[in-house]
Design a protein around this nucleic acid. Structure first.
Lengths: 341, 341
DNA sequence: GTTGTTTGTGAAACCACTTACATAGATTTT
DNA sequence: AAAATCTATGTAAGTGGTTTCACAAACAAC
């Protein structure tokens, strides 16, 4: 399929210089006279030369690649993050090796090792679910960080060579809850699932907002969905059964837009008017929010900004600069049709 | 950050064999006695050896990596495809280099060259938008195929070393349209956008179904949206203005679920009952279909099956086998609440 | 007109691994 | 028992670059 490739040696002969000089031109080294540089460049041009990436990698010990790990790259939110990161990294001259790990630790360890074996220059963990409660389970992150910088998007972990870019989920939910309460809606239900470490931070924001408003938190004010991802009907059923058990609520704050969609469907089934009878607030401000009927109010955590900061931080670290280990951005409630005006 | 790495040479000394033998163990070569194999393996184990991927790549001229190109990896449908592919390829021992190219040819050429430079073993183009009408514009695909196998997901192109896995969009839309007509709904609007080559095939299916049913196709039965992707409100407005100009329709077949969502919103605004006053059929059967209210009927093109076949075909090609150059799967209309029972 | 400093270039070592070829010993064949 | 074959292993030449070091030529300083 392919003949013998053109090598640096061919170029050197064709340009009448040594391979060292060709290499210098290749790497933009200073000490090359303009005349020889041109000779080499035209030789390259004429023979359609492309440097061999493996040989290059072997010499330089890098191939300008960043490993991106995500539980599920098809998740609406994670996919958006991956997309932004890919674009930004490409602009910086880096390629992205994608690893979808699912949610099991063993898979993640395997993926991590694989990325390290392939000598990526850095690893980005996209999503809040990479941090485990059991501190020991996070060892795989520390181990990786011993070799290359590790960036966490939407998760916080204090460790050497680990950099965290997060959204202030706590405050976002705190503010959203408080806003509902100020509008006279005190029976708020917090709906969440297990697929997210940030769920904990959000939950705390919810709890504190209620406490802060002097509302006694009944335990039925939190509803936990544990089941397969993105199963809209299962969550809808869960809400119905919760309601039918006599638990009444006038608003739902969901840790995720998909969950919020289920709340909309629940309202539809129960013939509840939105937002008069039931207000709903989602999280992530994803495409779903815009596509829902009625359009879903949702907390935007400025993913693009997070990704930009993450990328520039990573570039800084790779450039040998001291960079902030934690960066936090505020979120913002985008009000649409599922919350009172 | 890292001390001198353990090399094959260290292992050879530690195990008391030559580096060639170590290499043989590494590559699972036959001609190694079980005794020495074990010696080498334990030596590797003890010293925590990992082969250097670059050196390996240089020798073997491959690093077991597949390049995946997609216009936008955050697109619901493409993201799903990428996810499936990544999983399947990983199972085969391949990693994925992701390239989001957008829709411009120059970007695609650049990305293609980049992947080739990084010596991927194959390239997968995810999505129907990589084929251009102008035959010359597809040269970048032929060029790439001269070096590595190129796989097209949802696009067809007859060229050496190019393999196509497609869904039979034509028939899917033909059948869906026919079904509507059989249910007595003859005023069908085909709504599509420019971001897809498969849109043409779908359009043909629509046209032929109408013709086949003896319905004279008015030109206002096709509505083309040309604008930024995923702009739900813009498409809704387009539908409204179409309607207000006097064009009446009782069903919408959209080339994409996102477009179908706009049709739902349009119906909501115009107070049209679904499906009595307006039936809606989307395409791709994405998460949006399930999340829509009412739940959207949509054509499922069996993306997972496509990806499985694509992967096995690619593995076959890489293994030196003769493989089918075109594989077509039938799609299936998933009926939910936006079409009559 | 020597000495000291740049500047541009080449030779050769090195990066870590694969593999063709050679070879010694074991096993089979005749 | 000699010849032929096979098996396990080592030697050394590759893979295509980068980079250190040495050195000659050009230029400035004294």
């Amino acid at each position: 399929m392919k003949g013998r490739a053109v090598t640096i040696y061919d170029i050197s002969k064709q340009a009448g210089v040594s391979i060292a000089t060709v290499s210098r031109v290749l790497n933009g080294s200073e000490n090359v006279s303009e005349a020889t540089r041109q000779k080499v460049l035209t030789a390259m041009e004429e023979s359609g030369y492309t440097p061999n990436a493996f040989a290059r990698g072997l010499g330089l010990n890098t191939m300008k690649t960043i490993g991106i790990m995500a539980a599920d790259s098809s998740d609406l939110y994670l996919a958006k993050g991956i997309y932004y990161l890919e674009q930004l990294l490409r602009n910086e001259g880096y390629d992205c090796l994608l690893c979808c790990t699912g949610y099991t630790l063993s898979n993640r360890i395997a993926s991590m090792n694989l990325l390290l074996t392939k000598k990526v220059d850095g690893i980005i963990l996209v999503g809040s679910n990479f941090i485990y409660e059991n501190e020991e389970d996070n060892k795989y992150i520390y181990d990786a960080a011993a070799q290359v910088p590790v960036m966490l998007l939407n998760a916080a972990l204090d460790a050497p060579n680990v950099y965290c870019i997060t959204s202030d989920d706590y405050t976002s939910v705190f503010n959203a809850t408080t806003k509902l309460i100020e509008q006279g809606i005190c029976e708020v239900l917090y709906l969440y699932n297990s697929h997210s470490y940030s769920g904990k931070r959000k939950e705390a924001g919810f709890r504190d907002a209620m406490k802060n408003a002097g509302i006694k938190l009944k335990e039925d004010s939190l509803l936990f969905y544990k089941g397969p991802r993105e199963d809209v009907s299962a969550v809808t059923a869960l809400l119905e059964s919760h309601w039918d058990k006599g638990h009444r609520f006038k608003a739902v704050i969901a840790s995720d837009d998909t969950l919020a969609i289920s709340a909309l469907k629940f309202a539809y089934r129960k013939d509840l008017r939105i937002p008069e009878d039931l207000a709903v607030i989602g999280y992530n401000n994803s495409l779903l929010a815009e596509c829902a009927t009625p359009e879903l109010s949702s907390i935007d955590n400025r993913l693009e900004t997070l990704c930009q900061t993450l990328t520039s931080t990573l570039m800084g670290v790779l450039g040998g600069n001291e960079m902030p280990k934690q960066t936090v951005f505020a979120g913002e409630l985008i009000c649409r049709a599922t919350t009172p005006a």
